[in-house]
């Protein structure tokens, strides 16, 4: 009989997930059902107050804003990442192109956001250029609105969509496209009806890998957002640090985590059904 090493192999990751994912999630969950302490922290009494205040219009507005930003940027990301990944997979210089996508990651995330501020600011590169060419008379306010958030989010998140798409497209058997075309399909139709269904896994992974982090983002709206571009992440930070309402911060996190978890399960179920 062969010995089963499975449990030993998965022990480190199991420990990691328990210690740094499950336990913190359970703490968050239990805090969300407690009473808030007057000066931060929680009181050990069961309470649903945090969930009741979630139904406040302000919170729902922030939720709506978050959904709009997350859906819009995810859609644009996938539309942009698909042809990019396709081009890289078909190119003879794959390694160089992949490298070019990775290089920006060598710079700190926040510095890359500040770079966008330098480009789009009222006295930034773009405005100075437009002013000097005489195309505009006074500066245009590019920053501090929802569009700026979407733009910067797309920029910082798009590699997470390109990589999974690239790896599935690369494995795709392109002779299938030739076969489809031999059977009379146009190239467009062949790509749409033969390639896209075959790289479905890649698309789903790309959507998940971008939508979920965007949903919980708070640094981007903090830096390039304006007077009304709050996302759920900002609300959590504020409830935790400033208004000292830990249960409310926890309940928002619980909702955020559940929404994404349900989404992931839903996606994966529909995927495995297709494969059967």
């Amino acid at each position: 009989m062969r010995r089963n090493y499975g449990p030993i192999y998965v022990a480190p990751i199991t420990f990691w997930l328990c210690a740094f994912l499950s336990v913190p999630l359970l703490i968050t969950l239990s805090y969300s059902f407690m009473e808030k302490g007057l000066y931060g922290g929680v009181e050990l009494h069961f309470s649903l107050a945090a969930y009741k205040s979630l139904l406040n219009t302000a919170v729902l507005k922030v939720l709506l804003n978050t959904i709009i930003i997350a859906v819009a940027s995810t859609t644009i990301i996938v539309i942009l990442a698909l042809p990019t990944a396709y081009y890289i997979a078909r190119s003879s210089k794959k390694n160089i192109l992949l490298m070019l996508i990775i290089i920006p990651f060598w710079t700190n995330f926040l510095i890359r956001i500040y770079a966008w501020i330098a480009i789009l600011g009222s006295n930034g590169l773009l405005n100075s250029f437009l002013l000097s060419t005489g195309l505009i008379d006074s500066h245009i306010q590019f920053l501090y609105n929802r569009y700026a958030i979407i733009l910067v989010i797309i920029y910082t998140t798009i590699p997470f969509a390109i990589f999974p798409l690239y790896s599935t497209i690369e494995k795709f058997d392109f002779s299938l496209i030739e076969a489809a075309m031999d059977l009379g399909a146009s190239k467009k139709r062949a790509l749409w009806e033969v390639m896209i269904p075959n790289i479905r896994t890649g698309i789903i992974t790309a959507v998940l890998f971008t939508f979920i982090p965007i949903f919980g983002n708070f640094a981007v709206p903090q830096l390039v957002g304006g007077t009304s571009s709050w996302m759920l992440g900002n609300l959590i930070v504020r409830e935790l640090n400033i208004t000292r309402n830990w249960p409310l911060a926890s309940s928002i996190s619980v909702v955020l985590t559940s929404v994404t978890m349900i989404g992931v399960l839903f996606f994966m179920r529909s995927q495995s059904k297709k494969e059967l």
């Binding site: 997930l17 994912l21 982090p213 994404t260 992931v264 399960l265």
Partner: peptide, 13 residues
């Protein structure tokens, strides 16, 4: 699916 789920969650956290 479960493994992938936990991997995704781990990445995200």
């Amino acid at each position: 699916p479960l493994l992938l789920l936990s991997a995704v969650l781990a990445c995200l956290s």
